[in-house]
Design a protein around this nucleic acid. Structure first.
Length: 263
DNA sequence: ACTAACCTGGTC
DNA sequence: GACCAGGTTAGT
């Protein structure tokens, strides 16, 4: 369930369970997870304490007392399930972390595309992710600089985590609609005015989505039709101008937009 | 800039 | 049975 708002919520859940606790067991339950982090290395974090959990874009980082960091990426369908040691596991449990107080975090992920990796130094790893839109440093000038010279479409550029950390296919489309920007426009050709609108729209879309996630976690998949302005609304009327929402494919992914009021 | 690959489940 | 999916990366 993961774009920035969902991951932010998940990180809060993980903090409540894990911060201050000592890890008693890290188990990798799916072959692809064992490929990414060997059971031998996983065993090596037993006894380490979780001192803090950070989120960088869609990546969650459990910082350990030893200075290492357990990095968790949900990819398409990952999520935390919480419980107690000994509880029955969810159907799609792919990894689990157990703690000295009997608490447990289970990585629940039907598609098993999620990743758990161990970074030896907390500051290394995903330094490749760009500015996080929830942070004060996310400013029009910075976005403009990141987009300068880019020939890719603005939609594809927004999905590049080095340009904006945390946007995904849904909220990229939503932000472009709010900013009235054509998703096909070359990223490096946008006017300062449009980039400014886009910056505001990105912040607003993510802030609103985060509030929604808090209210009802999981709503994204079930109430798409009412929650989104354009995403998954091909053929339906634009809420601003009544024109028909179109779907195109960019970078192999669906883009939904209003051809009349996004230009 | 597009395609395939990683995985599996749900839908038409 | 074919096709689609909120992500990312490697290769063409």
């Amino acid at each position: 369930v993961p774009e920035l708002p969902e991951v932010e919520y998940a990180a809060r859940v993980a903090r409540e369970v894990a911060v201050g606790r000592v890890i008693t067991r890290l188990a990798l339950l799916h072959p692809s997870h064992r490929r990414a982090l060997s059971p031998r290395r996983a065993r090596g974090i037993t006894g380490d304490r979780v001192v803090r959990i950070d989120r960088a874009g869609k990546l969650q980082r459990l910082l350990l007392a030893s200075g290492r960091a357990l990095e968790v990426h949900f990819r398409m369908t990952g999520d935390w399930a919480t419980g107690k040691v000994g509880d029955p596991l969810p159907r799609f449990a792919r990894a689990l972390i157990e703690f000295d107080d009997g608490g447990r975090l289970v990585l629940d992920d039907p598609r098993a595309l999620s990743r758990v990796t161990l970074a030896d130094h907390a500051t290394r790893g995903e330094s490749a992710v760009g500015p996080d839109p929830t942070q004060p440093g996310f400013l029009p000038a910075r976005l403009a600089a990141a987009l300068a010279g880019k020939r890719v479409s603005i939609k594809v550029a927004l999905l590049d985590q080095r340009i904006v950390a945390g946007l995904g296919n849904i909220y990229a489309a939503e932000a472009l609609w709010y900013a009235r920007v054509d998703p096909r426009a070359p990223a490096g050709r946008l006017t300062a005015r449009r980039i400014s609108r886009l910056t505001t729209a990105i912040r607003r879309v993510l802030a609103r989505a985060t509030r929604n996630v808090e209210r009802y976690y999981g709503a994204a998949s079930t109430a798409a039709g009412t929650r989104f302005a354009v995403y998954d609304r091909e053929g339906e009327p634009c809420r601003r101008c009544g024109s028909t929402i179109a779907r195109i494919v960019q970078g192999g992914r669906s883009t939904y937009f209003c051809p009349r009021c996004q230009r």
